[in-house]
Each structure stands twice: as C-alpha cells, then as structure tokens.
C-alpha cells in the first residue's frame, strides 16, 4: 500500500444520540487521488471531513491516516499530515497579516525562523499571493481569503488536503485560479462540494453520499454524467453536460 492513504472502516457518527449523520461508511483514499465528496445539503459531507481530522470522533468504526488511528491521543500526529481548508475562510484566518497567518503553523511545529520564512514564501508562490504578503487579513476579498487559507495549509507541507466547499463565494476568475491551484497539488485531496463542474475539473474519483451512506463511488466521467443518479440525490448534472 502507498505511504499516503486514509482508511475509513465502518464509520458512523451522529451529533445527537440515535440520529446518525453518517452510517457505516467504508472506503480507502490513496496517494495521488483527488476525491470529490458530493451530496445534497445535510448529507454529512462536511461531517466526514471533520471526522478525518478529528474535529469530531466517530461513534462507531475507525479511521486511520497513514496507519495512525484518529483517536484523541493521536490527533497532533494526524493533524501534522492533514491540512483542512474550512468552508468559511474567515474563521481560518486570525493573525494580523497574511504572512503572519501563513507562518502560524510552521512556527507551531517548531521550525527555525529561516525555515518558517522559506515555507511561507513557497506557500505564497504556490497560491500566487506574494503581492498580499503584508496585507491585513481584514482587507482581503473573499477570493483572496480563500487563496490565503489554502496557503496557510500548504505551509504545513501536509500529505493530505481536505477542502470544504472551496468555490463557495468565488467569482469565475478566482474559481478558475483555485482549480488551477488544486490541480497543482499532487498528493491526496478530498474535496466536499456542490460545485460539480469544479469536482469534474479537479477530481479523479467521486464519492456520492446520501442519507449518511455511500450511494456511489467511481470515476467522475461515470458518476457526474449519470443524470438519474444525481437527480435522485437532489443534485444536477454539471453545467457542461446540461443541454
């Protein structure tokens, strides 16, 4: 098995007892895969991502990130491997300036200051935001905030990236830029989104979640062109396939 992978084994989770959001989810995500998690509102896409980084812990089943179990004691190790980009980028950014925010994680991991700066520089280059370096977080536009949020994650040099609705609130150009950035990231990605066109452009595997279970798992060319399957699950064909 490749070094970078996530194993999800019979995972169930509910915010309230006897009301599971996710039911018996099992799948493995491998290195170089880019997985689109799709599904209607409230089907548990974001919850699944939160389980993978231990923001919530499964009520049943187990999750392994590169053989490390996602349990409370192992969370610091798990979180070194995974970068999680929130749906609301604003919550993710809390330092004063862009460069300070990007430097937050490398500093926490105890890197020497020269290395911290090198990580910051590389992350900014990869997300094309060098010009925002000294800008205040509060003066960024929605698209810039999203790019900075991704840079804060890239600065951690994670093996795996999780993204929750990355294109929400982006204008077409920023959306296109984001797709380009995502395609440049070669490790394992899991992207929860309603934007099926973006999923088609960035993912080589799609998992459809419905009623807390995996309703379909396969390549985008198969799942995202299956009109009946998508409509049954309150979704629609990507715009490019609509007449």
């Amino acid at each position: 098995m490749s070094h970078i992978h996530i194993d999800i084994e019979h995972v169930s989770f509910g915010y309230e007892t006897n009301q599971n959001v996710l039911n018996d989810i099992t799948f493995t995500a491998h290195e170089n895969e880019s997985i689109g998690i799709i599904g209607a509102n409230g089907m548990g896409k974001s919850t699944l991502l939160k389980l993978l980084v231990g923001l919530e812990l499964p009520t049943k089943g187990s999750i392994y990130v590169e053989e490390i179990p996602v349990i409370r004691e192992m969370l610091p190790k798990v979180r070194e491997k995974i970068g999680y980009v929130f749906q609301d980028s604003e919550s993710q950014l809390f330092m004063n300036t862009v460069k300070e925010d990007i430097a937050f994680a490398p500093r926490n991991y105890g890197l020497p200051e020269e290395e911290v700066q090198a990580h910051v520089q590389r992350a900014m280059e990869r997300t094309h935001i060098q010009h925002l370096k000294d800008k205040s977080i509060y003066k960024l536009s929605g698209g810039e905030k999203k790019q900075v949020a991704i840079a804060t994650i890239l600065a951690m040099t994670p093996d795996i990236i999780l993204m929750d609705e990355p294109t929400v609130g982006l204008d077409p150009q920023n959306r296109r830029n984001l797709i380009k950035i995502l395609n440049e990231f070669n490790h394992l990605k899991l992207i929860a989104s309603h934007d099926l066109d973006m999923v088609y452009d960035t993912c080589n595997r799609v998992i459809l979640i419905a009623d807390g279970q995996i309703a379909a798992d396969g390549i985008p060319q198969k799942i995202l062109t299956d009109k009946e399957l998508l409509e049954c699950n309150h979704l629609e064909l990507p715009l490019r396939f609509q007449a």
Binding site: R79, G83, Y84, S91, Q92, L93, F104, R107, N108, V116
Partner: peptide, 19 residues
C-alpha cells in the same frame, strides 16, 4: 471555528511568536 483552525495548525496551548 477559530480555535479548531488553530489546533489543526499545530497550536497546543502556547502561542509561538515570531522571534
């Protein structure tokens, strides 16, 4: 959310300031 974002980026109770 802010706190979750901090812990996901290695925060462990002690703020690491720029030297």
């Amino acid at each position: 959310n802010v706190y979750a974002s901090m812990t996901l980026r290695g925060y462990h109770g002690e703020f690491c300031y720029a030297r």
